[in-house]
């Protein structure tokens, strides 16, 4: 099988890691998390744990299949995107919770635009001032909703 796998072991190394992670995740879910987070009922057609546990075990099987027959994947770089995304998520959550929309929304957009390399004042102005103001006017003033 795996006719397209290249001659280089590197091709298969990453998928194998993915497979191992999937197996580990499935095992943790099926053997630790699900039993701890569901109740055993005296009388039930299907125990509440049945479906989540089956899903965990199925993920183990999928992981095994990937380990055994690794197919090369896109091989995208992951360190920068994942740390970047996690950082952005943390900043937006704690920023919005702590400082509120009015302060955080312009700051957040500015941060992202600068990171992406935008330096033109016009577009920076639109993103950091005009759009948050529009959102605020629409939801808070017009609709009377709460923003963070």
């Amino acid at each position: 099988m795996a006719p397209v796998a290249g001659p280089f072991a590197k091709d298969r190394f990453r998928p194998r890691i993915v497979g191992v992670v999937l197996v580990a995740l499935g095992l943790v879910i099926a053997l630790i998390i699900v039993p701890a987070q569901t109740l055993q009922l005296g009388r039930a057609v299907m125990q509440p744990a049945a479906l989540p546990m089956a899903c965990g075990l199925a993920m183990v099987l999928c992981g095994l299949a990937i380990v055994l027959k690794p197919m090369p994947d896109s091989g995208s770089a992951m360190l920068v995107p994942v740390t970047g995304a996690v950082t952005l998520a943390l900043i937006s959550y704690f920023g919005m919770r702590g400082l509120g929309f009015v302060i955080m929304a312009p700051a957040l957009v500015l941060l992202m635009m600068l990171y992406m390399g935008e330096r033109r004042w016009l577009w920076l102005g639109v993103g950091t001032l005009l759009v948050p103001l529009g959102i605020w006017l629409c939801f808070v003033v017009l609709l009377g909703r709460q923003l963070p």
Binding site: L88, S92, M96, F101, A105, L108, V109, M112, M113, M116, G117, E118, W123, V126, G127, V131, P132, I135, F139, R145, Q146, L147, P148
Partner: peptide, 18 residues
């Protein structure tokens, strides 16, 4: 794109909060 994605991200936060 430097405007579209940041603004889209902001809308996602606002929309989910609403």
């Amino acid at each position: 794109a430097t405007l579209i994605y940041p603004v889209a991200f902001l809308f996602c936060i606002v929309g989910t909060h609403v």
